[in-house]
């Protein structure tokens, strides 16, 4: 197993090199540079001078071919330095820029992730147990509708109902204006209050998908001979379903956890934009528009590492939960 993991890590390093060089090449060759937006100013008499532009180009190696620029970036990464943002609004270190936003995204994605798994399992089991009954059919139709419902539409209607009409929920933002005067418990409550609508939007689609996924796997598993044997030996249907069938149906679900890892960090561009949630998805779009190469590269590196790591974790978990799989 260890040899397998070591081999995967080495292959992963080459994959990272390929991904980052390709992305760097693409963004450097896209029309527009970080200076394109910077030189636009609402005040017509204020423009960045040519001298300023040249100095910035040199400072960020934009005056050199992309491959040289990539070399500088790679050398920085090797020394643990992802560089600085180019946009004058945020010349901070890339690690700090990303670090500021990451907890915000995780607040939503991790909560949604746990909620999804907490709810989808009982719902999946319930649908299996009540298969083909009117209740299960109603549940299935509802889940299909939820799966198809775009998040921005759901967000809009929830905002109208809970934010404007009833006034129960905040429409935008991550905290209230009096957040800093609150106690720790008060802060937690306030954060939850602001996170409820985005979390619901982020959760219902995946909940619908995973519930259907569990039900499909369970239906296949309950047809197996060993379940029939267990029932014949007098095991109660509930125990046969939960203890015997569910364990095996869980295998593909557990591997999905690993593959979900990158999406936890990527956040949701649409929801973060709607709810003014200062997360990674929002940051990515903002920086692509600004052509802020160091921040874009920092994010790409993070997503790539997490994707590779997620796949590795999925494979390892697969071997752990299913004794038939070995990586010798």
């Amino acid at each position: 197993m260890l040899t397998y993991i070591a081999r995967r890590i080495i292959i992963g390093a080459f994959t990272l090199l390929a991904v980052t060089s390709l992305v760097y090449c693409l963004i450097r060759n896209m029309p527009g540079t970080p200076l394109t937006q910077m030189t636009e100013n609402p005040n017509a008499k204020q423009i960045m001078s040519e001298k300023q532009q040249k100095e910035l180009m040199a400072q960020y190696h934009l005056d050199k071919p992309w491959i040289v620029g990539y070399g500088y970036w790679l050398a920085g990464v090797a020394q643990g330095d992802l560089g600085r943002g180019i946009n004058p609004g945020d010349r901070d270190r890339v690690t700090r820029i990303i670090g500021r936003r990451l907890p915000n995204t995780l607040k939503l994605t991790l909560t949604s992730f746990f909620l999804t798994y907490l709810l989808c399992i009982p719902m999946g089991l319930y649908s299996t147990a009540r298969n083909a009954t009117p209740t299960e059919r109603t549940m299935a139709i509802t889940l299909y509708i939820l799966y198809a419902l775009p998040t921005f539409v759901a967000a809009l209607y929830m905002n109208l109902l809970f934010g404007v009409k009833l006034g129960w929920m905040p429409i935008t933002g991550m905290t209230s204006e009096d957040y800093y005067q609150l106690s720790t418990l008060g802060k937690l409550g306030d954060t939850l209050h602001h996170a409820i609508l985005p979390i619901i939007c982020l959760t219902y689609g995946s909940l619908a998908y995973y519930t259907r996924f569990i039900k499909a796997n369970m239906l296949e598993t309950v047809q197996q001979d060993y379940i029939r044997t267990a029932l014949a030996k007098g095991v109660s249907p509930r125990k046969a379903l939960v203890v015997h069938a569910f364990r095996n149906a869980l295998i593909p679900l557990v591997t999905l956890i690993g593959l979900t890892l990158p999406t936890l960090l990527a956040g949701s561009v649409i929801l973060e934009s709607i709810y003014q949630w200062d997360g990674i998805g929002h940051l990515f779009i903002e920086k692509v528009t600004q052509r802020d190469y160091p921040v874009i590269m920092g994010l790409v590196l993070m997503f790539s590492v997490m994707t590779l790591l997620g796949q590795l974790v999925a494979d390892v978990l697969y071997a752990v939960v299913d004794p038939r799989i070995t990586y010798s």
Binding site: N43, Q46, I47, M48, S49, Q52, L56, P88
Partner: peptide, 8 residues
């Protein structure tokens, strides 16, 4: 390079 607008 820190001041994009005002110097001009």
């Amino acid at each position: 390079t820190m001041f994009p607008a005002i110097p001009s």
